[in-house]
Design a protein around this nucleic acid. Structure first.
Lengths: 240, 240
DNA sequence: CAGTGGTCTAGACCACCGA
DNA sequence: CGGTGGTCTAGACCACTGG
């Protein structure tokens, strides 16, 4: 029987998970080693098989173990620790740091989509699209230049929105439930206009995130987000 | 009874999940709306409560619904879609693209840690640390400049490793089970040496990832990874 | 073939929330 | 108080793996 003196009352499946996790992160059980079978855990801990199963299933979902039906459970090879990079509203993000967020609106208009843009948005060439360009400020310092095209079908009242009060991201999250997205992050030098609006030199490197969001059946939005490299970084934590 | 004609044989809990997920991503059920209770699902689908519970519990883990004991289950407010950014071995990454990976080793040595470095690694100032500098090539083109400090306690035989055969990341993953890590990504201009080794101009912007990895009790490694912005980008997918 | 995990059930007890 | 979710059990049948 294992020592379960962790918390006054911890669910049985959590105790089993803690027991196994401790042996993995301590290195006592190395990648590739077998983990006790469900039947063995039933014996050791005096729990039902469903409880042992839940413990192992959740550890598998967390990437700590690999399970193969008929074969067994083993400590996962590479602990591909991963972090969550999420789509967040920049207003919320700035507010969370205890800073003031404000917006400079440069453009909000309807346009005809060119060939490439229409294709990216899943529309016919020449279709009507919404276009917004704005600059986000944190404590009156520019931190993001946001150039965004929006599919009218996803947010019909996009043009009527006051983006000094709410952000495009928030508006879209609220009106077009996000189901899918893809992004890429690269390093670029800013265009003349981007540099001017961000208050940086054209030789100052920037992080550029290009993001395409999908809501249900149609592409909702295509955004190019430019961050001054000297004032912004994407940071994150990995946890096992 | 719902229409469950999705796949020939899909587990009951997956069918329940699919039923609910479909109504959420289609927008039929909006954020804040109540989701059928476990008891209701038991009725609708003719499954046991454990099965309905598993469906809702997993949807909750995926962030699609929020559950409150005693109150009920509701569609989650903002679908904080997020992607996993994982620590991968660059050799594996390049090989996966069907390209050749090779390495240019510039330095592998033991050094005395300065003040800041020692602190970052959780060692005393002046302690012995391992230092490696290498360039990773994809099809003979430089894509990453890797400058890394390693805690000897985490990988005692680091200096004896042939990094033209294996990579520091892989060596560390295999010898020091990863339990925690933090990173930041920013845009910078390369140093003179970085530019020279990467074969780019000093004015070409680069993505820089600084990564600190922890293995069990001690900090394992501190790495600075420089990617030419014109040749590399971090890309990812979000899924609901 | 025996052992493994994948799924499922029909109960059960409890803690919590809101009316 | 009734309804909710959180947990747990003691069985069960199945598909798959390996020797």
């Amino acid at each position: 029987m294992a020592d379960l003196r962790t918390e006054p009352e911890l669910p049985a499946y959590e105790q089993v998970k803690a027991f196994i996790r401790a042996r993995i992160v301590s290195g006592e059980w190395k990648p590739g080693d077998a983990v006790p079978s469900e039947a063995a855990l039933v014996q050791q801990f005096g729990v039902s098989r469903m409880t042992a199963n839940r413990a192992l299933r959740e550890l598998s979902a967390e990437g700590l173990v690999d399970r193969v039906q008929g074969s067994g459970t083993r400590v996962a090879q590479l602990h591909r620790i991963s972090s969550r990079l999420s789509i967040r509203d920049i207003h919320e993000e700035v507010a969370e740091r205890g800073h003031r967020h404000s917006t400079r609106v440069l453009l909000v208009a309807a346009e005809k989509a060119g060939q490439g843009l229409a294709q990216s948005l899943g529309l016919a060439a020449g279709a009507r699209v919404f276009h917004s360009v704005l600059v986000h400020l944190e404590n009156e310092v520019a931190i993001q230049y946001e150039d965004r095209y929006v599919n009218p079908a996803a947010a019909p009242d996009y043009l009527d929105t006051d983006f000094s009060q709410t952000s495009p991201t928030l508006h879209l999250l609220q009106h077009a439930p996000l189901t899918e997205a893809s992004y890429s992050i690269e390093a670029c030098l800013p265009s003349a206009q981007e540099a001017r609006e961000l208050g940086i030199k054209r030789s100052d490197p920037c992080l550029v995130m290009v993001r395409r969001t999908v809501s249900g059946a149609h592409v909702a939005s295509l955004a190019r987000l430019v961050y001054p490299g000297t004032r912004y970084s994407f940071a994150g934590q990995f946890q096992a």
